[in-house]
Design a binder for these strands. Structure first.
Length: 494
RNA sequence: GGCCCGGUGGUCAAGCGGUUAAGACUCCGCCCUUUCACGGCGGCAACACGGGUUCGAGUCCCGUCCGGGUCACCA
């Protein structure tokens, strides 16, 4: 059964040499965790920084772990994050298909080619459970390794189930180069004859990766550092085929704490979860970019980056070798920064739904409330509880009227409210300026400092000690009628 | 356990043989102020340890310790 060598010649892609091509190759689990997102970002950045091509490839070779709708999560996340791909299952491209399960036949053919070249062999052993993974790694002799081609072929033809294993040399060492970690050398005897094609005919991740990365002309293989130890086996595969070895970029993991990676199991937030928690996509990306990469040179102190700025500034030299702990506090800080940097209109737009969650009264302006909130919330989800008092006056204690710094106590407050009510009733207009002017003029007339008058008004209007915005803004939003009603209620408490 | 990788404040991190060891988050003060925020100013806090090499070491080498990864017909 001779191999059709023309097939392989035709498979060699005509991708112009010299152009950077990177790929994000997630397996569709339906869950985009933070580490994943960061890998996607870095992969995209490397491509964009070099004016190269960014490809999306779906790695679904594990038929037992298919999750319904999982690829949609990937498309959606990438699109929201603006990590647009130039080639992929949905947009097509010159080296389609971009879904591994649709490339099944290809892997088998290449595996046979590798057997032909002597770098792989059929293995008919029963599924070995472990035996190799505890204690010393002492590779037991697999009798299949030394089967002659004819013997092996006979078994295959007889319909015996088999896997195809990589034939790793037993002597010598293998050195591979990683853009972040440098040269790493291992002894070949510490490497095992890994399975390339599974019993069900599907390739393993490790094999499919090498084939696809080559066939798709990938120049930079970006992935998590958990693959660092299998990289030598990749090199042996590339060498076996006689292919150029791509640049490896192994990224250290994003940790939840010093001991554990971020994981769904531990309940760590995915990208979707973070959004539900009130974080902005841009803030998440900005934070995540800096978790494991930092700018050098004259922008070493810059922390806020747009995607374009990141694409321009990104470099492999800035990547960290050690794991980074995900700090929600710092993400929160970035989120606050992004929230404040928005135009008032844009902020009102995103904050609106959260405001309306607790302020049902349509008379009260979302725009005005949003203006109070912009510098006062770190996450969108902070909003509802902060503005609930607009909708309904909370139960509150008269103790709130006492404030040392403002020089108020129940008695003083009573006098202030008594004076403020008729003045407010008589105001020509119910505008910010009018209310502010009326109140400050009244304070002057009463010969008290502004705070002495403002404090009781704000407390009575809001019914709580801490509020977004001051007395004037709150009265303005409440409207004259409601303000007066609340102030009178306050007066009755005193 | 074998192999591989890593180790600068609580966290993210700059640093590439000579610095008072940046910066950011957190925390604490102060200023601003109509509460709270925002903003401004200031402060606490670090080179894991031990040996070398060198005139000089966070930076180079070795060892120890600690942490991570891997050792699947999962990715």
């Amino acid at each position: 059964m001779a191999l059709d060598m023309k097939y392989f010649e035709e498979m060699e892609v005509k991708i112009p040499k010299g152009k950077v091509r990177t790929r994000f190759a997630p397996s569709p689990t339906g869950y985009m965790h933070v580490g994943n997102l960061r890998t996607a970002l870095y992969t995209w950045l490397i491509a964009r920084n070099a004016g190269g091509t960014f490809i999306l490839r779906i790695e679904d070779t594990d038929q037992g772990r298919l999750v319904e709708g999982a690829t949609d999560v990937i498309y959606k996340t990438l699109a929201e994050c603006k990590l647009n791909h130039d080639e992929g299952p949905d947009v097509g491209g010159p080296v389609a298909p971009y879904i591994q399960s649709e490339r099944r036949d290809t892997y088998g053919k290449y595996a046979r080619l590798l057997i032909e070249k002597g770098h792989a062999y059929y293995c008919f052993c029963e599924k070995a459970e472990s035996g190799e993974d505890s204690g010393d790694f002492d590779r037991t002799d697999d009798p299949c390794r030394s089967l002659s081609t004819a013997e092996a072929q006979a078994k295959v033809d007889a319909g015996e189930p088999y896997v195809i294993r990589q034939r790793i040399p037993r002597e010598g060492t293998t050195t591979f180069h990683d853009a972040i970690f440098g040269d790493i050398t291992v002894e070949n005897k510490t490497l095992d004859d890994q399975v390339l094609i599974k019993r069900d005919g599907m390739p393993t991740y490790n094999f499919a990766n090498v084939i696809d990365d080559h066939l798709m002309g990938i120049t930079h293989v970006v992935r998590g550092s958990e693959y660092l130890s299998s990289a030598p086996k990749y090199n042996l595969l590339y060498e076996g085929f006689g292919w150029d070895i791509p640049t490896y970029v192994h990224c250290s993991p994003v940790m939840r704490d010093a001991q554990n990676k971020m994981s769904k199991r531990h309940g760590d937030p995915s990208y979707e979860d973070l959004k539900d928690q009130g974080f902005l996509t841009d803030a998440i990306l900005n934070y995540v970019a800096l978790l494991g990469w930092s700018p050098r040179g004259d922008i070493a102190e810059q922390e806020v980056f747009t995607l374009d700025e990141l694409a321009r500034a990104f470099d492999l030299a800035g990547m960290s070798k050690s794991p980074a702990i995900f700090d929600i506090e710092k993400l929160t800080h970035f989120n606050a920064l992004y929230l404040r940097a928005m135009s008032p209109e844009a902020f009102a737009e995103v904050a609106g739904p959260y405001i309306r969650e607790s302020v049902k009264n349509k008379q009260m302006s979302v725009e005005e409330i949003a203006a109070l909130l912009q510098a006062r919330c770190e996450k969108l989800t902070d909003i509802p509880e902060k503005v609930a008092f607009f909708d309904s006056l909370p139960e509150y204690s008269a103790d709130l009227f006492t404030n040392k710094k403002s020089k108020t106590d129940p008695e003083v407050s009573k006098a202030m409210l008594k004076a403020a009510i008729p003045m407010l009733e008589g105001l020509d207009q119910w505008t910010q300026d009018a209310i502010h002017g009326g109140l400050t003029a009244l304070a002057e007339k009463l010969e008290v400092k502004n705070a002495t008058l403002m404090w009781p008004v704000r407390i009575a209007a809001a019914g709580q000690a801490v509020t977004p915005g001051g007395a004037v803004e709150i009265c303005r939003i409440l409207g004259r009628e409601e303000t007066l009603r609340r102030l009178k209620l306050g007066l009755n408490k005193l």
